[in-house]
Design a protein around this nucleic acid. Structure first.
Lengths: 143, 143
DNA sequence: ATTGCTGCAAAGTGTTTGCAATCTG
DNA sequence: CAGATTGCAAACACTTTGCAGCAAT
């Protein structure tokens, strides 16, 4: 349920090894992203990182997502957000109250993909899965 | 994998029994929605139903979704769409090529919800699950 | 020196809202 | 009739894009 700690440097190295240039705005965005334990919006990063313009923030987030350093998720209300995580962690359990996120790799969908394939003869390429709820703190708060 | 056929009348009855008024624009939107076997966008309905304004279309779709007659899904590219289906059918397998949709009720997520609950002590309220792929026709087309 | 990256601001999507007029129950 | 519903257009939230200048390799 946990994993290797992510650092700006390790991400920078991956970026570099993929032929991407390392710029000040990109470093700043990566730092900001790593500073969030919980889901954050692109606009939050825009506000937190004056060193980068809006377009750069969006482009960098997309880049990070393409390298699997973060995922774009959709919160219950339908509002988009990003979460960071080591590559390989695909799914998230998000608290509707405070936004605390728990990643999990156990992918229950694999178990039915074979069934679906057999029944529908579709070629199955992927899926989205997000689980919503309330963390212990938020669940116990009368609120 | 299939179910009871949905008709404008049965939806209208449900609406009525829930205290909603039956208006010409609503009927028209429901008719249009039922005319789609595949995912459709709100704007498509707006274009197809001159009898209803844009706001009414969005409001009616939201109403139908709240009564579980349709679901808003997110296609692979991240573009929103709606799919119709009898209440109870929660998940969809969508062909990226032609949009053909297959509903399935088998919910593999239930199987891990208990595990997640035990491990995280979250209260689990729900989830989003969508599966993407290509239907037999699209998968075989060299394209 | 290349060529990718950046910022700005304008243009896009997709959706919601305020409000007076209108229609249903 | 009362109150729900409608349409319009303006406002919104979020994201993408064109392009000229700048900077990493």
């Amino acid at each position: 349920m946990s994993g290797t700690q992510l650092s700006t440097e390790s991400i920078v190295q991956t970026l570099s090894s993929h032929g991407h240039r390392i710029t000040t705005p990109r470093r700043a965005v990566i730092d900001a992203v790593l500073g969030h334990e919980r889901p954050f919006t692109a606009e939050q990063i825009v506000a937190e990182v004056p060193a980068a313009g809006r377009a750069t923030v969006y482009r960098t987030l997309e880049l990070l997502a393409s390298l699997d350093f973060c995922n774009r998720i959709l919160q219950p209300g339908g509002h988009p957000a990003y979460v960071t995580g080591e590559p390989g962690h695909r799914h998230h359990l998000v608290c509707s109250g405070c936004g605390t996120t728990v990643s999990f790799t156990a992918c229950p969908v694999d178990q039915i993909v074979d069934d679906l394939r057999a029944e529908t003869h579709f070629r199955i390429d992927g899926h989205h899965l997000e689980v919503f709820g309330a963390c212990p703190d938020c669940a116990s708060t009368p609120n």
